[in-house]
Design a protein around this nucleic acid. Structure first.
Lengths: 334, 334
DNA sequence: TTGAAAGCGCTAACAT
DNA sequence: ATGTTAGCGCTTTCAA
């Protein structure tokens, strides 16, 4: 087994080209140089198969390149698509992406942000779980953050600094309203809503959409886990057999609703109409195929990454449209 | 807007503690120091909220910490779970994880590896797409690699160096055999197999399991995309209406098979029995619920990450068991 | 246009 | 046990 050979450095290139290291650096980063020098340097670099060390550059510039991405759960298809969008944008900039999963837990999120700081990463796309208490210091430490999918809860003292954070969001409000209107149009009056704690914005949109008819008991929150999703769904269905329609705030809650309904022998769409947020590939395979509010997950990620790269003057918040896709999981109230 | 304050460095800590920087470094990395000194340093570090800069350390040590992870497609639930396993192991070591998606394309994979080298990352968990031509040089460059889910195609000259690469795999061979035996037990004789180009090992296992009865036309390969999966499934079903059972090499091919069957009005399990590799959450929601060969995806990721961290003496290859989970997508031949 | 040199924050070799 | 110092590879003044 041969020992790994020493890395080629800028010094080697300078030597071979017969110029100073500064010149090599300039040429390679597109600075000015005479045509002849440029050619000599490029030649030498090619001949030695030189790849500049990110380590040296990073230390010098006091920042590591790359984008950090914080999501609650990478196995959730929605966040996976979002991540895919970030990756695809980052790739076009040639930037590596570091991923962290927060489990929707503010504490883990804080840890992760701490380690980003330790790495001197200064660009983050985050689906935030914590509140302003956590993000404000990070912002002050020079981190440039773009929120995706949701923004942070309003924290009393921090509004100003948090308002500065750009965000790329799906149009929750319109999505929820459309879904609720669709269901009421079918005659449904008792509509349940299953959502995560982190989806407070959707909950509020739901309350607003339902208006006077609101029954607070039908808005049920769940924690981030699959188990908690199932518990919430089964709980609602058992406690309130009078609900005739359910809207879920994400796909795992939708999955839970289907499972719980099956378990309790509640037939979809005969006994219960179901609309799920997020159009995952399996929605179509389900029996019956699920009616969904589609969100442009990959686009959200892409745009967020773009924003965090551009850093310059930019729009405060980007809202991307959702779309109701009617399949077979809803029927008239009976 | 206040300008981001200068980072606290080891020098600041040394000064406040009244010791040299080396002492600070030693104390913080668990070296020897008198109890009193240790306390003074720790105090100072706490007071200043000092976090050592990974940049400095990395440059000094000529390697950035962290684990790189290369997967074909992060939106595929299998790889997402695998990634989750890697992330979870990495977290226990406090190491960041950099993800790249290869799209199962050797060229993109080579690019990605190049950029890892540029970052001086030296630990990679990879689901390889390219062949030995690509990995051998990386290995020689000092990268320590662990393959997950599959290993690299045998490349003529490279066998020795590639044989050194540890791998964590699901027991494909047993999984395929069990599935095939289950289907033949139900009376099926014409069994189709849908697999990716990258899943050649499973194809071979399938050929071996079927034995004499093998009809090469029933083994159909697909490229990495969803479209290609669908085309392969629909193609097989149309070309060979005599197949009574299909095994798919991954979940996207399973999805494609369900969709294609529905489109062609082939009923599952009445007209066609289906077994899918990989137990994704939606397999149970499908109508009928899908019989699957479950793989410990998250475990594969976790173990691979562990191997790449431990670097020491290690087993060559870890094979993890699969499990046939019988649900409702298979029936007797009719 | 080009080169020399400083210095980013850290660790390890060496000296005390 | 602790301090001093060199140096990792790069970019960026500054001077020529």
């Amino acid at each position: 087994m041969s020992s790994p050979q020493r890395r080629t450095t800028i010094k080697d290139v300078a030597e071979l080209a017969g110029v100073g290291v500064a010149t090599v650096s300039r040429v390679l980063s597109g600075g000015s140089a005479s045509a002849e020098t440029r050619e000599r340097v490029l030649d030498a670099a090619t001949k030695l198969d030189y790849r500049p060390s990110a380590l040296g550059r990073n230390l010098r510039q006091q920042r590591s390149g790359g984008i950090a991405l914080l999501v609650p759960d990478i196995t959730d298809n929605f966040y996976a698509r979002l991540a895919d969008g970030v990756l695809s944008c980052a790739r076009s900039y040639g930037e590596p992406v570091t991923i962290g999963v927060t489990g929707d837990d503010p504490e883990q999120e804080a840890d992760l942000v701490g380690s980003l700081l330790e790495q001197s990463m200064d660009r983050v796309v985050a689906v935030p779980s914590g509140d302003g208490e956590m993000w404000a210091p990070a912002l002050r430490a020079g981190l440039s953050v773009v929120f995706a999918d949701r923004r942070v809860w309003r924290a009393p003292g921090q509004q100003r600094v948090l308002a500065e954070v750009p965000a790329v969001l799906a149009d929750d409000r319109a999505g929820v309203r459309t879904a609720v209107e669709y269901l009421t149009g079918l005659g449904h009056r008792k509509i349940g809503f299953l959502a995560r704690h982190g989806q407070s914005h959707r909950m509020q949109a739901f309350r607003d959409a339902v208006g006077d008819a609101l029954d607070e008991e039908l808005v049920v929150p769940a924690r981030a886990s699959r188990d908690s999703a199932y518990a919430a769904a089964a709980g609602l269905l058992q406690r309130r057999p009078d609900v005739t329609a359910v809207l879920t705030g994400d796909n795992m809650l939708g999955e839970a609703a289907v499972l719980a309904a099956r378990e309790l022998d509640v037939r979809i769409p005969r006994d219960l109409s179901l609309v799920m947020f997020d159009d995952v590939p399996w929605a179509e395979l389900c029996a019956p195929p699920l009616t969904v509010v589609a969100q442009p997950a990959q686009d959200i990620g892409y745009r967020a990454a773009e924003l965090v790269m551009r850093q310059g003057r930019r729009p405060r918040t980007v809202t991307l449209p959702t779309q109701l896709i009617v399949r077979g999981s809803c029927g008239p109230r009976r």
